[in-house]
């Protein structure tokens, strides 16, 4: 995998922080966080998104919307890693006087571009931002991360239809294609939709990438900035629960914390001590 040793260490550290924070909080969508973590990290820490660290509302910034909001701990974790929010804010998760909860919320954090949580909202909101940027002839881009289960929401397809019609070359949808939704595999729930063909049929540019390979993902997104003449869907193939063997590609882990025996595996594989969980 084309992630450097140093990056691997950072990602391991982030997985650990996400777990400790979620575990202490008493609930978390760990597996969903782990499938998209490399991509969210690359967006903020490998130069894909242009932003001003001193001004979250800089008008010319690129926007990122985590439409699959239940991976909020991954987004907030990366914002912490990028130095945009404090560790104190991150670790307040679900505590008394919590500053953040399980879904990204604009009320809680200036770096959140759209409050999400109810699925099927983010692409439409991102589209609206892309339209406004286009009206003002700004060069900024809008990146919206969707889950593959989320594509079952009908409103996603309203935006899939309208974005090419409005000529939004500044809009990129990133599909965290981890094959699993809350109760089961996506395929067992609604069959095997060919997402790429469907988006393409509505006029989207479609590319595929390994969502855990940060170099490939970064090059892909930076390349789009130069070439896109219409909205693009990036199908990112990922593993739900990536990084913890018993959670990987296992539909039981959508919204679950480990029991006593399972906890041993998490501690071993993420390098967590008893003291860190107290």
């Amino acid at each position: 995998m084309a992630n450097t040793q140093e990056e691997q260490q950072k990602l391991l550290h982030l997985r650990k922080q996400i777990f400790i924070t979620g575990y202490k909080g008493g609930m978390a969508h760990l597996a969903s966080c782990y499938s998209c973590l490399e991509m969210v990290y690359a967006l903020y820490c490998k130069g894909i998104l242009r932003f001003d660290a001193t001004n979250p509302k800089w008008e010319d910034r690129d926007r990122f919307i985590l439409s699959k909001g239940h991976a909020g701990l991954a987004l907030y974790g990366v914002l912490m890693e990028a130095g945009l929010i404090s560790e104190e804010m991150y670790h307040s998760y679900l505590m008394e006087d919590a500053q953040i909860g399980g879904e990204p919320c604009m009320r809680d954090c200036d770096w959140v571009e759209a409050t999400t949580g109810s699925l099927g909202h983010g692409l439409s909101m991102g589209q609206g931002i892309a339209m406004a940027l286009q009206m003002d002839q700004k060069d900024a881009g809008v990146y919206v991360m969707l889950g593959d289960g989320e594509l079952e929401e009908g409103t996603v397809w309203e935006a899939v239809m309208s974005a090419p019609a409005f000529g939004l070359s500044n809009l990129v949808a990133i599909l965290d294609c981890n094959d699993i939704q809350k109760m089961d595999f996506v395929e067992k729930t609604i069959g095997a939709p060919k997402w790429g063909e469907k988006f393409a049929s509505f006029g989207w540019n479609v590319v595929e990438v390994d969502g855990h390979d940060m170099e490939a993902f970064t090059n892909c997104l930076l390349g789009l900035r130069e070439t896109a003449d219409r909205p693009t869907l990036v199908i990112a193939h990922t593993v739900k629960g990536k990084g913890v063997s018993i959670m990987e590609h296992n539909p039981n882990w959508h919204f679950k914390l480990p029991g006593r025996k399972e906890l041993k595996v998490f501690k071993e594989e993420l390098g967590i001590t008893d003291a860190e969980l107290e």
Partner: peptide, 15 residues
């Protein structure tokens, strides 16, 4: 729904 959500997005960008 798409229109309402897009309007929200536009409003975040000053429209």
């Amino acid at each position: 729904e798409n229109m309402v959500a897009a309007a929200a997005g536009m409003a975040t960008a000053g429209k």
